Amino acid sequence: MDTVKIGIIGTGWIAEKMAITLMGMKGVEAYAVASRQLQTARDFAEKWGFTRAYGSYEEMLADEKVELVYIATPHSHHYEHARMSLLHDKAVLCEKAFTSNARQAEELLNLAKEKNLFITEAIWTRYMPLSQTINEIIASDIIGRPMTLSANLGYPIGNRERLRQPALSGGALLDLGVYTLNFASMIFGTEIENIASTCIKTDTGVDAQNSITLIFKDGKIAVLHSTMLSMTDRQGIISGEKGHIIVENINNPQRVTVVTEDYQTIAVYNCPPQITGYEYQVYASIDALKNRWLESPFMPHAETLRIMRLMDNLRKEWGVRYPSDE
Rank of each mutant, 00 (worst) to 15 (best):
S296N: 06
T21C: 08
N291D: 10
F188K: 00
G12F: 09
A34G: 14
T99C: 15
F298C: 08
M128F: 02
S185V: 06
R36D: 06
K5I: 06
K290T: 05
M1D: 04
K26N: 15
V282L: 03
A45W: 02
L87R: 14
L229I: 01
A122I: 09
I200R: 15
R321Q: 15
L229H: 12
K96G: 06
T198A: 06
F216C: 00
T304Y: 08
G189R: 10
G7N: 01
E58Q: 13
N210Q: 13
K316A: 13
V178A: 12
N270V: 00
Q281F: 04
M60I: 11
A284S: 14
G10K: 00
R162P: 02
Y263M: 01
A30F: 14
Y155C: 01
K290C: 04
H81I: 05
R83Q: 13
T213D: 13
A19W: 02
L38W: 03
F216T: 00
Q132N: 13
A302V: 13
E248G: 02
E161P: 00
Y57Q: 07
D325M: 05
E46S: 14
N251L: 15
A302P: 05
K115W: 04
R103F: 11
A267C: 06
S35V: 10
R42T: 15
E161G: 00
R306M: 09
G177P: 07
F188V: 04
T198L: 00
N210R: 10
P129F: 07
L38S: 08
A196S: 12
A34S: 09
R234N: 11
N210A: 13
A32V: 07
D43E: 14
K217I: 11
T51I: 06
V206L: 05
H78S: 08
V28S: 03
E106W: 11
I221E: 15
T73F: 02
L86R: 02
